[in-house]
Design a protein around this nucleic acid. Structure first.
Length: 577
DNA sequence: GCCGTTTTCGGCCCGACTGTTTTCAGTCG
């Protein structure tokens, strides 16, 4: 069983919880939690880094000790320290940390005084009314424990904690509209990972400025979708929505809006890094502004905050402390690609296979988005569930497109196909028919369970075919549903560069494949990326914005993206020698 | 346990809200 980054993060988090409950050194505990977050959020595979002998202590927050512990986890799947801790305190106490409102101090007290060792014990004690006997605990604490236990039970069944960006957007959109309609609200913005366009969102942070006594918090907790008010104060309130998402609303003074936006957009790692720069200059940055002593010297705009530490404005998608601060200091920040740069879509299906609309309908939808070209990429024959095209049917589609292109010049329809890569690395249709196409995009739809070497070799063999242009949804993952198959992305990118091939960033919000980390790697290795929607329906063309978000997180500029080019220059670029 | 332009010791983010108190500890982000 290969060790995943989340396995390492889970072990570190459990260690932190148990140390916390034991009353350990708070900074040591923080180091474990930091490391858990860092490793969990790493896009590179940590086990792989270990196998390749990479120096883990180069990672911020991982030192000599923790890197040795990571190596041990990768090799053995566990850690003696964890076993020691579990021998001295019941392991399930760490599970209790998931109960909101319970922290290490309370858990320790309940364990020592009432011998509460498990969620089961906790439930019985809360329902039996024995917890209120402890000093510092009361009836309300008991009640909230009971409610929390129910919520956790429900969540276990639902199984997911972070929701996909697109789903968060469906929830956030109407809520923001509602809040914009509240009298007295001036500026309002969603911050957090939502603003950074991260592929999944844990909770939603909303910031606003408002007139005095506007009653904003009252209106917020009255929102129709609110299931539970978790906290309600003058400047900060939290609610749980019916669909499980937690939303925090913060009201900040106008003069602090920019500083608050920086603070709540994060990432935490990015904030810590810029605060450190501030400290070196005898300044303090918090959510209210940049301070010199008691005096606020910046904070109304994000730009003003960055300017005080001699940095240019940094786009939210870059704020992950993955080199953006150093780049900003050296004047090396990338100019990021934007949705307006996109001139066409290079991946779309029609009714001929598993799409839902005719070629004409798809073309019209592309025209509505102002595109200059659209590639029609139906499946090939091996994908039988999608009624994939064989030579004959593809040939008919080619004729149809040629006819269509002759009778109009509003948009160029590219003759193309999403060609299946077979298990042995051969392509699903013969070369002579591929020669009639403008573009060939290739993907894997079967045999996900090959070994890393086999899968990588399979794709590189496919790239050896001179008709191969773009490798689609390269890791095959479905966010929250299917892990990526084992594949060596560095080798794939290198092979693509050597052969004049390209990679797709599939913009479908369930895929967003390749991820931000791989985008950045491809950019550094000078391999260009097609940001494509894989549209099966007319509205799917709007997925482009998610792809662009991910591309920006991967540092891609317009020049790094294939479909920012006109068809004329794209055509030259994809031609293989 | 990490980190270093005050570098091998001594720092490590801090403000808001809740519940149980009667001035604050615990929790959260």
């Amino acid at each position: 069983m290969p060790v995943h980054n989340s396995d390492v993060a889970d072990i570190f988090n459990e260690i932190a919880d148990l140390l916390d409950i034991q009353g350990g050194n708070p900074f040591r505990i923080r180091a474990y939690r930091n490391a858990a977050r860092t490793v969990g959020g790493l896009s590179a595979n940590i086990a792989e880094m270990v196998h390749e002998g990479k120096d883990l202590s180069a990672i911020q927050g991982i030192g000599k000790d923790l890197s040795a512990k990571i190596v041990e986890i990768v090799r053995t799947g566990t850690l003696p320290l964890l076993a020691d801790l579990e021998a001295s305190v019941p392991a399930e106490l760490s599970v209790m940390m998931k109960v909101q409102g319970l922290g290490p101090k309370k858990i320790k007290k309940m364990y020592e005084e009432l011998d509460i060792q498990s969620l089961e014990d906790l439930k019985n004690a809360a329902e039996g009314g024995t917890i209120r006997s402890l000093p510092g605990f009361g009836e309300k604490t008991e009640q909230s424990i009971i409610e929390e236990l129910k919520r956790i039970q429900g969540q276990k069944k639902a199984g997911k904690e972070r929701i996909k960006l697109a789903e968060a957007e469906r929830i956030a959109g109407p809520l923001l509209e509602y809040l914009k309609g509240v009298k007295g609200i001036k500026d309002i913005a969603a911050a957090g990972s939502f603003r950074r366009r991260k592929e999944t969102v844990g909770d939603l942070d909303i910031l606003c400025t408002c007139k005095k006594n506007a009653g904003v918090m009252e209106r917020f907790v009255e929102y129709e979708d609110v299931a539970k008010v978790l906290a309600k104060g003058k400047t900060k309130s939290s609610v749980a929505l019916r669909r499980g998402l937690q939303v925090d609303l913060r009201v900040v003074p106008q003069a602090s809006f920019g500083a608050a936006l920086v603070y709540f957009t994060g990432s935490k790692e990015h904030n810590i890094a810029i605060r450190k720069i501030a400290v070196r200059r005898n300044l303090k940055i918090n959510e209210y502004g940049v301070f010199k002593g008691e005096k606020r010297i910046a904070g109304s705009s994000e730009k003003s905050v960055y300017a005080r530490v001699d940095l240019p404005y940094i786009e939210p998608e870059l704020r992950e402390n993955r080199g953006e601060i150093e780049a900003a200091q050296d004047g090396g920040l990338p100019d990021l690609v934007a949705i307006d740069h996109i001139k066409g879509d290079l991946h779309a299906h029609t009714k001929a296979t598993d799409g839902h609309h005719s070629l004409e309908e798809m073309v019209r939808a592309a025209l509505e988005r102002g595109y200059e070209y659209l590639a029609i990429t139906d499946h090939s024959r091996h994908v039988t569930v999608a009624h994939g095209l064989d030579e004959k049917r593809l040939s008919r589609q080619i004729d149809e497109i040629e006819k269509y292109n002759q009778k109009q010049d509003d948009i160029e329809i590219l003759k193309s196909i999403e060609l299946d890569i077979l298990e042995d690395g051969s392509l699903d249709l013969p070369d002579d028919i591929l020669g009639r196409l403008d573009l060939v995009i290739c993907s894997i739809h079967s045999k996900f369970n090959l070994s890393r070497e086999e899968q990588t070799g399979r794709v590189i063999r496919a790239m050896d075919n001179p008709h191969f242009n773009i490798f689609c949804h390269p890791t095959g993952r479905l966010i929250n549903e299917r892990r990526p198959y084992e594949i060596d992305m560095e080798k794939i990118v290198r092979a693509a560069r050597e052969r004049g091939c390209f990679l797709e960033l599939n913009a479908h919000p369930d895929r967003l494949d390749i991820n931000d980390f791989h985008c950045k790697m491809a950019r550094e290795m000078r391999v260009k990326i097609a940001v494509s929607t894989d549209a099966h329906r007319l509205d799917d063309f709007d997925f482009m914005k998610y792809g662009i978000g991910q591309a920006r997180r991967g540092w891609l500029g317009p020049a790094d993206v294939l479909n920012t080019r006109s068809w004329k220059s794209l055509k030259k670029l994809i031609r293989r020698k």
